[in-house]
Each structure stands twice: as structure tokens, then as C-alpha cells.
Design a binder for these strands. Structure first.
Length: 480
RNA sequence: GGCCCCUUAGUCUAGCCUGGUCCAGGACACAUGGUUCUCAGCCAUGAAGCACGGGUUCGAAUCCCGUAGGGGCUACCA
């Protein structure tokens, strides 16, 4: 039977890198085995869920290339895939549980719950959680109060004795004693289900065979198992993936890391690079290749090969990987990507000449701005201190150097690498080192010390702009 | 506090299941050198690790126990 897997993001904020991380593993597993990858929107938190966030999740995952086979926007045999549209299903299932006695109504007020929590804290109790106040309410009285419209939630009745044990694809069997669990709320007072209920009901109804989700869910998995049992359903296989971490090893968060997929898109990361990087978090191909494509990932990935240690999200390595991908791009593709990133149309002919000069100098598309800015500037910023980088030359030398170069450029039909021998000759004649001499010109032409090769850059700029910049710099340096 | 998960260099990892071929391999970052008009790229070289303590064994990164450290959960959030 081909596997059916899913991701179940909550539309409560910017599309999260952790969602993409888990999505990619799920999707690869489904693709490899000819199964289905389902996207389900868990919008049962009515106060935090937004339509915008939901749309942003679709857009971000599609940008990354993580498309799904079934979902709210594409439909599928188990629609609807948006939990807010499945309320009736959850209500019916909850009623069945109450009927069986596996769940019960709880009429406790939020205030009472808060008090209980306070008391447990004050008593330094080893148990924190619901105290079971409504657990043994008479069934007919419970039904009467509910019928009278009294506000209540429905809680799962956890057995008081014993423990629930489960197998995780990646770990030794995990067992949690029932006395450590409290009676989890299944249906909130607003009639919407909690994650636990909706998740179990939907996974079952949607035929999910394998649950690959983040390890933060381990502690509540026994509750989910108890639910499967109460319904009389066969539970799926569980595989708890490691949590992405900040540098300090805490769970990845937006305070300590860029976490929104939109940031990565806007910064100019290639989707392939980000996915490659994410795949490397906890997993690696057998031969330890670092750079690989989706086909290879899908062909080799098995969930049981994922490492359980939470990997620290290292932007520096992502930058390196993205640079690798950028360098591997055909120049036309890179030009298109740059135009898309800049958001306005650039002179294509000129851009085609700039691309080879900047390609190996960019780690993100956003770098284009800082690497290629001088090609687009009307005037380049000049500062006396910058010219100090033309070492072992006096200001008078520098002015002279600029003038000499100016004369050569003016005399030439075209500026470009052809000028190199003549320029070197000038430098040698005057007793200037080649390095400092070129540095002096570089700063005049680009305003910076670190740039693409000078003569190639000048060729792109053309004679007129080079003349203007050299002349301006000479004047600038000459005046005190 | 309680419960649960995790532990190979600064970071990502291979090796661990089936102990010896590992005086632990690869990658990022870092350092040095080379190429060179700067930067980048590329090439070469280098520094850096099996958390700790016991045990089992002829032999342990690999098996067992303990300790320490980190993390997660502990909501009518997911």
C-alpha cells in the first residue's frame, strides 16, 4: 500500500522554515514510494488563524517547489482539507466518545483552571494539569447541563493506571505513564476541536499511514494513541523529526533566526539551494555528497535515516550552498533571476555583460546590488581615505596616475582588456607598483576597493563613463 | 518542579545496529600559501572533535550502567 503522508501547518503567521523542512521529508517519502502528499490547514485556533497566512503558506511552499497532491486549494478525495470546514465531523466524533465514556464534558471555568494551576505551582506539585474535577460527573446531569446551554469543553478520559507505549521510527520505544498525562481538552467551548482531536480524526479519515512531524509532539503522542484506541482505529506509523535549532540550541525562532520563507525568497536564495540545505539538516546521501538535486534526494531518502539530534540552522553554510547554485546557473537564467529580484527591467544587453563579472561574487541575488552598484550609479562616491588603499603612492602620484590613465582611455577607440599592457607600461615607467596603480584607478571608476576585474568592468561601462569618472576623480584628488 | 527526547571539531555530518580496516572521514566557517589589478572564485596545506566517569572485552566513537549538559512538553496554541 503506497504511503499517505501530510503536513498540517497552522495559518497563524509567516510561512515557517520548519514547515518547509518537515514538508520536504514527507514529500520525498511519498514521491519515492508512489504515495500521496497531503496539505491540511489546521485553522482551529479561530483567534490566531488568518486567510492571509494561509495564502502565504501556499505561495511559499510553491515557490520552494514543494507541491502537494491534495489540499484545500487543489481538492482531493478527502475534502475539505481545511479544519475550520470540518467542525461537524469533529462534533460527531466527540459525541461518540462521550457516549462511550471515553470522553466527558467539563464545565470548569477558565478561572477555576487558573486557580488549580496556581495551587499546583504553589504546592510545588510534581503534577501540573487538569485535576479531574468534572471527570466523574453523573452522565445524565452532564447531559442536562449541556442541553441547558451551559458552557463546557469535552475532555479525553485518560486511564488512571498504566502507561501508553509507542514505537517511533527513529527511536527506542517511548512510554509515558498515564498519571503523567492530564485529561486533554478535545473540543473547546467555542465548538472547535483542539489540535489533538482534529489531528487524529483527520489523519484517520484521510488515510494517513505515516506521521512525520517535529519532535515537539512526542509528549502528546500517547494521548493521540489513546484517541485512536478509543475510536477503535489503527494508528499510523510515527516518526518524530528533529527540531531545527538556533545557535544556542533552542528551538528555532524568529528572534534568533530568519524563520519566514518569504525572507529567504526576498533575500535571493534559490529554492533548490534552500531545499538542498534543509535536506542536509539531519540527513545526508550515502556518499556524503553535499550538493544534490531533488531527484537524488527522492531516490535516496528514507525517514529512518534521519538523525535525531536537533541541527543548528547555520546561515553561513546556506550562503555557501546558494553561491554554489548561483555559480552553476546558465548566465541567461541568472540574468533573469536578477531582473526578477531587482523588480525592474534592466538593460538586457548590458546585464548580459555584467553577469559573468558578478556571478562568482554573489551568495544571494540580493548581493547584486552591492556588487554591481557602480555599473548603475551616475556618480561613484569618492573619499580620500579610500585612495589610501593605493599604497606607496602620494596624492600627487595618484592624480598623475589618473591623468595618465585618462589620456590612454581617451586615445583608445574602445576601453577594455586591450588597454592592460599600455597601463602597465605607464605604471612601470613612473615607478609605481602595478597593484596600487590599478587600485587607484579602481577606486576612481567604482568608488570601492573590492570589485570585479577592473578592465572588464570598464569595458561594460564604456569609454565615456570611464573618462568622466577618471576626470572627476583626478579633480577630486587634486583639490585639497 | 515533573515527564520525555538528544549528546562525534565553532557548525552540518559519515562511522555506531553487525566492536578491530578510525592514532575518526567529508563539508561550511577559520588560518596559511598559490593563481591574480582588488575582491570573489579556483587549487593546495593546516588547526580543530568521539561530553564525562565506570564497566564488558585481547580490543570501544561503536555494547551496558551512571553522571553531567542541552532541548522539548507541561494551554479551551499548534
Amino acid at each position: 500500500m503506497p504511503p499517505r503522508v501530510r503536513i498540517a501547518p497552522s495559518p497563524t503567521g509567516a510561512p515557517h522554515v520548519g514547515t518547509a523542512y518537515v514538508a520536504q521529508f514527507n514529500r520525498a517519502f511519498a514521491r519515492k514510494h508512489g504515495g500521496a502528499f497531503v496539505l491540511r490547514i489546521e485553522d482551529t485556533d479561530r483567534t490566531r488563524s488568518t486567510k492571509e497566512s494561509e495564502e502565504a503558506i501556499y505561495a511559499a511552499l510553491r515557490w520552494l517547489g514543494l507541491d502537494w497532491d491534495e489540499g484545500p486549494d487543489v481538492g482531493g478525495p478527502h475534502a475539505p482539507y481545511r479544519q475550520s470546514e470540518r467542525s461537524e465531523i469533529y462534533r460527531e466524533h466527540t459525541a461518540a466518545l462521550v457516549e462511550k465514556g471515553a470522553a466527558y464534558r467539563c464545565f470548569c471555568t477558565p478561572e477555576r483552571l487558573a486557580e488549580v494551576r496556581e495551587r499546583q505551582k504553589a504546592e510545588k506539585s510534581s503534577f501540573f494539569g487538569y485535576d479531574g474535577h468534572c471527570r466523574d460527573l453523573d452522565a445524565s446531569e452532564s447531559a442536562r447541563r449541556a442541553a441547558a446551554g451551559e458552557t463546557h469543553v469535552v475532555r479525553l478520559r485518560i486511564p488512571s493506571e498504566g502507561a501508553t507505549r509507542f514505537e517511533d521510527l527513529l527511536r527506542k520505544p517511548i512510554e509515558i505513564a498515564h498519571k503523567e498525562m492530564d485529561d486533554q481538552v478535545l473540543l473547546k467551548s467555542d465548538g472547535f476541536p483542539t489540535y489533538h482531536l482534529a489531528n487524529v480524526v483527520d489523519d484517520h479519515l484521510m488515510g494517513i499511514t505515516h506521521v512525520l512531524r517535529a519532535e515537539e509532539w512526542i509528549p502528546s503522542t500517547p494521548k493521540h494513541l489513546l484517541l485512536y484506541r478509543a475510536f477503535g482505529w489503527e494508528p499510523p506509523v510515527f516518526c518524530h523529526l528533529p527540531l531545527l535549532r538556533n545557535k544556542d540550541k533552542s528551538k528555532i525562532s524568529k528572534r534568533k533566526n530568519p524563520v519566514s520563507l518569504e525572507w529567504y525568497r526576498d533575500e535571493g536564495y534559490r529554492p533548490e539551494a534552500l531545499r538542498n540545505f534543509l535536506a542536509l539538516m539531519g540527513w545526508s546521501p550515502k556518499d556524503e555528497t553535499e550538493v544534490f538535486d531533488e531527484a537524488r534526494f527522492v531516490a535516496e531518502f528514507e525517514p529512518e535515516d534521519v538523525k535525531t539530534t536537533g541541527p543548528v540552522f547555520d546561515l553561513e553554510k546556506l550562503d555557501w550552498l546558494n553561491g554554489e547554485y548561483i555559480r552553476a546557473m546558465p548566465e541567461d537564467d541568472l540574468a533573469n533571476a536578477i531582473v526578477a529580484h531587482v523588480g525592474k527591467d534592466l538593460d538586457r544587453e548590458e546585464l548580459a555583460r555584467i553577469v559573468p563579472l558578478v556571478q562568482e561574487r554573489m551568495k544571494r541575488f540580493a548581493d547584486f546590488e552591492s556588487v554591481a552598484d557602480f555599473f548603475y550609479a551616475d556618480e561613484v562616491p569618492l573619499a580620500k581615505e579610500e585612495f589610501a588603499a593605493a599604497k606607496k603612492m602620494t596624492d600627487a602620484d595618484r592624480v598623475e596616475a589618473l591623468k595618465a590613465a585618462l589620456a590612454l582611455v581617451e586615445a583608445a577607440d574602445e576601453v577594455g582588456v586591450d588597454l592592460e599592457p599600455a597601463l602597465k607600461e605607464v605604471a612601470t615607467e613612473r615607478g609605481w607598483k602595478i597593484g596600487p596603480f590599478f587600485m587607484c584607478l579602481r577606486i576612481a571608476i567604482t568608488g570601492k576597493r573590492a570589485t570585479p576585474p577592473l578592465l572588464e568592468s570598464m569595458a561594460v561601462l564604456g569609454k565615456d563613463r570611464c573618462v568622466a569618472r577618471l576626470r572627476r576623480a583626478a579633480t577630486f584628488l587634486a583639490e585639497e
